[in-house]
C-alpha cells in the first residue's frame, strides 16, 4: 500500500451510490438491533423449557418452531446474535489494538525492531486461523472467553502486517521528516501522524474480518469447543440439532441462516467500503 488512503469521511458520499454497501449496512443495523433488543423482541424468555412442546414446526406461536427440549428457536436465535456479535466485537477490538500498536511501531521504527516484529507476525500467520484456534480451544476450557482468546491470537497479525506497511510509507513523508527534525518525540509523531493515517485501511479490514470471525466462532462452537449450554449460540444450535435435520429441519436451518446472514452483511459492507476507499476503484 503505497498510496494515501483517503480519509473515511471524504469517501462516505462516494460510498452511498454503492447499493451493495448500503444493503450491507442496512442488514448490519437490523442484525445489531435484533441482538440488542433481544430481551424485548423475543417472544419467550430465553431459557423457558416446555417439555410438552418439543420439536414443534414453525407456526404462529413459534415462528421458527421449537427445539429438542421445547425452547423457542426464534428466541434463541435473537439471543444468539448477542453472543456472536459480542465475540466478533471482542476479538476485533483485542486484535486490532494489539496488531495496530505493534504494526505502527514496527513500521515507524523500521530496522531490527521491525524485522523482529514482522518475523513473529509471520509465524502466527503461518497457522490458518481456524487451526490455531482449534488447538488453543482444545487445551483451554471451552467457552465464550476461550473462543475470543483463541481467535484473537490468530487474528492480530493481519493488522500488524497491514498497519506496518501503511506506517512505513507514512514515516517517509516529508511532513513526518519535518516533525522529526523539529525534535518532536517519536511517540507523539506516531500518535499524531502515523496512527490516524493507518486507521482507514484498518477500519475497512475490520469490517471485512467481522464476517470471518463470526464464521470461525460458529465453527468452534459447532465443534463443541466454544460456547456451552445453556448459552444461546448459533454454531452450538446447529451442532445440537444436526441429527434432526431430516426430521425437524427448522432446528438446524434457522441458526445456520442467521450465521449466513450476519457474515454476509459484514462481508458486503466490507467489500463496499474497500471499493469506496480504493482510489483505483473500478465502477
Amino acid at each position: 500500500m503505497t498510496h494515501d488512503a483517503p480519509p473515511l469521511r471524504r469517501s462516505l458520499p462516494r460510498l452511498l451510490p454503492d447499493r451493495f454497501a448500503a444493503f450491507g449496512a442496512v442488514l448490519i443495523v437490523l442484525v445489531v438491533l435484533a441482538a440488542v433488543l433481544a430481551p424485548w423482541l423475543a417472544p419467550y424468555p430465553l431459557d423457558e423449557v416446555r417439555p410438552l412442546e418439543r420439536l414443534r414446526p414453525p407456526s404462529a406461536e413459534h415462528w421458527f418452531g421449537t427445539d429438542q427440549v421445547g425452547r423457542d428457536v426464534l428466541t434463541r436465535i435473537l439471543y444468539g446474535g448477542r453472543t456472536s456479535l459480542f465475540i466478533a466485537a471482542a476479538v476485533l477490538a483485542v486484535s486490532a489494538l494489539a496488531g495496530v500498536t505493534l504494526g505502527v511501531v514496527a513500521g515507524y521504527a523500521g530496522g531490527r525492531l521491525r524485522d523482529v516484529i514482522m518475523r513473529v507476525t509471520d509465524v502466527f500467520l503461518a497457522f490458518p486461523a481456524l487451526l490455531l484456534s482449534l488447538a488453543l480451544a482444545v487445551v483451554l476450557q471451552p467457552g465464550v472467553n476461550t473462543v475470543i482468546l483463541a481467535i484473537a491470537v490468530t487474528w492480530w497479525p493481519w493488522y500488524t502486517r497491514l498497519s506496518a506497511s501503511v506506517a512505513a510509507s507514512i514515516a517517509t513523508r516529508p511532513y513526518v521528516d519535518a516533525a522529526r527534525c523539529l525534535g518532536v518525540p517519536a511517540p507523539l509523531i506516531i500518535l499524531r501522524h502515523v496512527l490516524p493515517n493507518s486507521l482507514t485501511p484498518v477500519l475497512v479490514q475490520l469490517s471485512l474480518d467481522a464476517g470471518g470471525v463470526i464464521l470461525t466462532a460458529a465453527a468452534l462452537s459447532y465443534l463443541g469447543l466454544g460456547a456451552q449450554e445453556p448459552t444461546a449460540e448459533w454454531g452450538l444450535m446447529v451442532q445440537q440439532g444436526q441429527t434432526l435435520f431430516t426430521t425437524n429441519w427448522w432446528v438446524v436451518a434457522f441458526p445456520g441462516l442467521a450465521i449466513l446472514l450476519t457474515a454476509f452483511a459484514f462481508n458486503v459492507l466490507g467489500e463496499g467500503l474497500r471499493g469506496a476507499l480504493d482510489p483505483r476503484r473500478v465502477r
Binding site: G211, L215, A218, A219, Y222, G235, V238, Q242, F245, T246, W249, V252, A253, P255, G256, I259, L260, A263, F264, N267, V268, E271
Partner: peptide, 22 residues
C-alpha cells in the same frame, strides 16, 4: 458473497440432508 459467508459445516449438513438423505 453468499458463498464466502456460508458456514461450511451448515452447508455440509444441508446438502447431506437434501441430496444424500432425502
Amino acid at each position: 458473497m453468499l458463498a464466502v459467508s456460508v458456514p461450511v459445516f451448515w452447508l455440509a449438513l444441508a446438502l447431506q440432508t437434501l441430496f444424500a438423505g432425502a
